[in-house]
Every structure is written in C-alpha cells, then in structure tokens.
Amino acid sequence: MRLNYPTSIKIIRVPCTGKVDVIHMLRAFEKGADGVCVIGCMEGDCHYKAGNFRARKRVEQVQKILNTVGIGGDRVKMFNLSSGEGPLFAKYAKEIHEKIMELGPNPIKLKKNKAA
C-alpha cells in the first residue's frame, strides 16, 4: 500500500486498547506529548470482548481531566478501525495531526521548557 501518514506520530503498540489506562495517557501529556490518539478495533469486534469499550471510557475520563487542568480535552481522541483498513489509519493519523496542529503545542511542555 505504501501509504503516508504524518511523521509527528509515534506508534506505541499494545495488545489491546483495553490495556491503555488513564494514567498512561496522562503520563504522555505530563511528559510533553501534544496529543494522544487511541486506535482500537471496531466496536463489537474486540478479541477480548470489551477492551475497546473500556478504552473509550478511559479516553473520555482523560478528556475531562485535561479540560479541568486547562490543557484541553480535544487533545485526546479515540478511533476505531479494523486491522485491514490501512488507508483509514492514514486518514485518522492525518486528522489527529491536523487537529493538534490547530490546537498548538501542549502548554505544559512550553511551561516546562521555560522553567528549565
């Protein structure tokens, strides 16, 4: 397929999105990530039955937390696709990249750099 997606995206592989916990996403932001995108299997197609539903709820929790601390809940998003949908992956990757570019850098990263 040789598809392109933005180089700003770093992929972290997990056995299932159900493995992704709230603290993992928060740590990413604490360390300076500008956005986090969780990509899980199609709803109803989870090999572990409910992993992607758990992930969606956790993403919603993180959105609330980020809104509270003033970073903006839009920086974290969940997508669903099947493993055969490469073009859709590339599309979503582009979409989140554009969204983050629009939001600008993580304010925490800027403040951290300023302090250092």
């Binding site: 709230v22 603290i23 928060l26 740590r27 932001f29 604490e30 937390i65 980020l66 509270t68 601390v69 003033g70 970073i71 304010p107 925490i108 403040k111 951290k112 300023k114």
Partner: peptide
C-alpha cells in the same frame, strides 16, 4: 491519576 492531574494543573499555572 490524581498526582498526575495535579502536576499538570500546577505546571500549567506556572
């Protein structure tokens, strides 16, 4: 989770 939330809050407040 609470510690991380507070850390980010305070960092954002400078």
């Amino acid at each position: 989770v609470l510690a991380s939330t507070l850390r980010m809050y305070f960092l954002n407040q400078g």
